Simulated assay, not measured.
Amino acid sequence: MKTVDLRSDTVTQPTPAMRAAMMAAPLGDDVFGDDPTVNALQDHIATITGKQAALFMPSGTQSNLCGILAHCQRGDEYIVGQNAHTYRFEGGGAAVFGSVQPQPLVQDVAGRMALADIAAAIKPDDMHFARTRLLCLENTWNGNVMPDGYLHEATQLARDHGLATHLDGARVFNAAVASAAPGQGAMARVREIANHFDSLSVCFSKGLGAPVGSALCGSRELIERARRLRKMAGGGLRQAGFLAAAAHHALDHHVDRLAADHGLATRLADGLKDVNGLKVRSAQTNIVFVDVATGRGPALLEFLSQNGVLATGLIGLRFVTHLDVDAAGIDHALTTIRRFFAELPAVPPAGAAAGSAVY
């Protein structure tokens, strides 16, 4: 059986139809602004998100970086969750490259910072403090959809204090597919989520299956500032239409099918719930986190790899479904995990014993 790669939805390969779209793309020089395929993609994603403009970026990290730096100046700060991607997993770029200070706050299990904590973190206009300029949120959060009520309350609080707002929407299409009202459609739901924010970053290279790329969406003025920042960060591309065509194809053909990924994640989570030694944190979209009792996480990862299943263990075991995974692959992963535990002495449920190690 072929390897079942559940490490991330970034491992997808372009489909034959996507490859054909890439090869057929008309090209220009995007630094001069004359690549027609890039321009068409930017117009398309700006329309979808309801923003005035958008800018194609090589990566989500660069898109978030340019977004934060377009909102903030040296000596400013942004409020962000302690475990948020824009703070914890992007190399400290805003601080390193922009001298923009992060103000991380504790989050609950749903990824929410308490509104009172956000309000308390906003600094007075005093020379002793960094200037608080921006609130950053994330959707989805660990595979779950951030509730609309919270998005509204948090961004309204920010606006009431004169702050701008930015969404790390790397998997916002997953959030939209999972939470769209009956008959609403994913694109309308994406716009509804985006309306809470002044800017958002959207990934094409995760669940949508493009090989490269993200977009920063916002006002024309913000995008023009970000364009300069992108050039400074080495993100000015030439005949980028090859990559933009893949992203455009993904928007046109790979959004609704995200529901299939969500279904496979549910299949995996449900199949693991009765495995002694595991605690499954079920997700609403395409990511499943699993806590492993008694420190056996590394051994399980190794066993999975030896038997053709790949996962990650940075923050507990994480399994991510995507367009290159099917039901047979999920069933193989389930069988392999069950076999690992069947060959071990009995263990207490994950997190049940006092002081037991998780992963």
Rank of each mutant, 00 (worst) to 15 (best):
D160C: 07
H161Y: 13
I79C: 13
Y78G: 04
P182L: 03
N83C: 04
L105F: 09
R159H: 06
G91Y: 08
D148S: 09
M146W: 00
I118V: 10
D160H: 03
V96L: 15
L115A: 09
L115W: 04
D126Y: 07
R112G: 00
G149I: 01
S99A: 12
V145R: 11
A158S: 01
P147R: 05
N144W: 04
L137W: 03
Q82K: 06
A119N: 02
V145G: 12
T140R: 05
R133A: 14
A94N: 03
D126I: 04
T155K: 14
A114D: 14
Q184F: 10
P147M: 08
V100T: 01
Q82I: 09
L105H: 07
M113I: 06
I118L: 07
V96K: 14
M146H: 01
D160R: 13
V96N: 04
Q156F: 00
V145I: 13
G92Q: 08
N142K: 14
A119Q: 10
G162H: 02
K123R: 15
R133P: 09
A95G: 08
A94W: 03
L163T: 00
H161V: 01
G98I: 00
Y150D: 13
T155C: 13
A114M: 06
M113L: 02
A84D: 12
A116H: 06
A180W: 08
D76I: 05
A119M: 03
R133Q: 07
A95K: 11
K123F: 10
L105C: 01
Y150P: 11
V109W: 10
P102S: 03
R88I: 00
W141G: 02
A114I: 00
Q156M: 12
L157D: 08
Y78M: 03
S99Q: 10
M187Q: 15
Q101H: 13
L135T: 03
A94P: 10
A181N: 15
A188Y: 11
V177C: 13
L151H: 02
V145S: 11
A178H: 09
R189Y: 11
A84K: 06
P147Q: 14
L105I: 00
H152R: 14
I79S: 10
G81A: 06
G149T: 11
A110T: 07
G91A: 05
P182T: 12
L151R: 15
M127V: 12
T86I: 01
V145W: 03
E153K: 08
Y150H: 07
G183Q: 14
Q101R: 14
P147W: 03
D148G: 10
L115V: 07
N139W: 00
D126K: 05
T165D: 08
H128K: 10
L167C: 02
D76N: 12
G93E: 10
H85L: 01
L151W: 00
A110Q: 14
G183T: 12
D168H: 13
E90C: 12
D126V: 04
D117C: 06
N139D: 15
Q82H: 12
A130M: 11
G169H: 05
A178P: 06
E138R: 11
L151M: 15
H128V: 12
W141F: 15
A175H: 07
H166G: 01
P182Q: 10
R131V: 13
Q103Y: 04
Q107T: 05
